[in-house]
Amino acid sequence: MRWRNTEFSFNHIIVDSLHPGIREYPPQGQIAQNLEHFLCTQPGVDCSNFMAAVTGPNCCLSPSSLDLFYKHTPQSTATKNGVHLSQMIRRGTIAMFDYDFPLINMQHYNQLTPPVYNMASMPKNVPLFLSYGGRDALSDVNDVKALLTDLKDHDKDKLVEQYVEEYAHMDFIMGGNAKQKVYDPLLAFFGQH
C-alpha cells in the first residue's frame, strides 16, 4: 500500500492522536477545529477541496454534492481504525491490527506479530466486483493490481474488474455520473450472481 501525498502525513497524525487518549478520529469540537487548521496550513494542502488531499483529485463532484458532504463532515471513526490503516500503509502489508507489544499480539493471535491476510485463500467461486479509479489515493491502482495478482486463480466468471481512469475515491460515492459508470454495472453484476 502506498500514500501518494508525502506532504500530508495523515498516517502520522492518526497514530499520534492515539497517545493522548483520543479514541475517536477526527475528534469533534475544538480539537477537530485545531486539527483542521493544522492540516489546512500544510504545504501542498488546498483545503478548498480537502478531500483531494486525502482521497485524490475528484473529477465528477458537483458543488451541490460537495455542499451536502461538507454539512455532514467530518464523520468520525474509532482512532484504532485509523491507526490500523496507518500501520498497513507504512508497512506495505494487509495484516490484522498490531498492538505493538508482542505479548498482547500473542493474546489476540497466538503469535508475536499480527497475521497477514491471505487474499489468495478467498474461495475462488465468491462473486467479486472490483471497481477502482486512476486518481484514487486510498485505493491506489498499484495496490488494486497487487490484489488482482493475488486473485489470479479466481473463477473468471465470478470476478469483474472495472477501472474508471478519471475517478478518485469520492467519485465512486458522490460522482454525478456514478450511477451510470458504477452502480448500474454493479447492480447488473448482482443480478447475474
Rank of each mutant, 00 (worst) to 15 (best):
M1G: 11
M1W: 10
W3N: 10
N5W: 00
N11G: 13
N11L: 11
I13N: 08
I13M: 07
I14C: 08
L18T: 08
H19C: 06
I22K: 04
E24K: 13
P27A: 14
Q28M: 14
I31N: 08
A32N: 11
Q33E: 12
N34P: 06
N34V: 10
E36H: 12
F38Q: 06
Q42G: 08
P43A: 05
G44H: 03
V45M: 09
S48A: 04
M51A: 13
A52E: 08
A52M: 03
V54Y: 08
T55M: 07
P57R: 01
N58P: 00
C59L: 05
S62K: 01
S65V: 10
S65F: 09
L68T: 14
Y70R: 10
Y70V: 12
P74V: 06
Q75V: 11
A78Y: 02
K80P: 01
G82V: 00
V83A: 04
H84F: 06
L85S: 15
Q87D: 06
M88A: 14
G92M: 05
T93E: 12
I94A: 15
A95H: 13
M96V: 01
D98A: 00
Y99F: 13
D100K: 13
D100Q: 13
F101T: 06
F101P: 00
I104Q: 15
I104A: 11
Y109F: 10
N110E: 10
Q111G: 01
T113E: 05
P114G: 06
P115T: 02
P115K: 00
V116S: 09
Y117S: 05
S121K: 09
P123G: 02
K124H: 11
K124C: 02
V126F: 03
L128Y: 01
F129M: 00
S131V: 04
G133S: 05
G133E: 03
R135I: 02
A137D: 13
L138V: 14
V141G: 05
D143G: 13
K145P: 01
A146S: 09
L147H: 04
L148Y: 04
L148K: 03
T149C: 02
T149V: 04
T149W: 05
T149A: 08
D150P: 01
L151I: 03
D153T: 14
D153P: 13
D153F: 15
D153N: 15
D155R: 06
D157A: 12
K158G: 02
K158Q: 14
L159P: 03
Q162W: 07
E166V: 04
M170P: 03
M170S: 10
D171H: 02
F172W: 07
G175P: 01
G175H: 05
G176L: 10
N177A: 02
A178F: 07
K179S: 14
K179V: 12
K179G: 08
Q180G: 10
K181V: 11
K181I: 11
D184N: 07
D184E: 15
H193C: 12
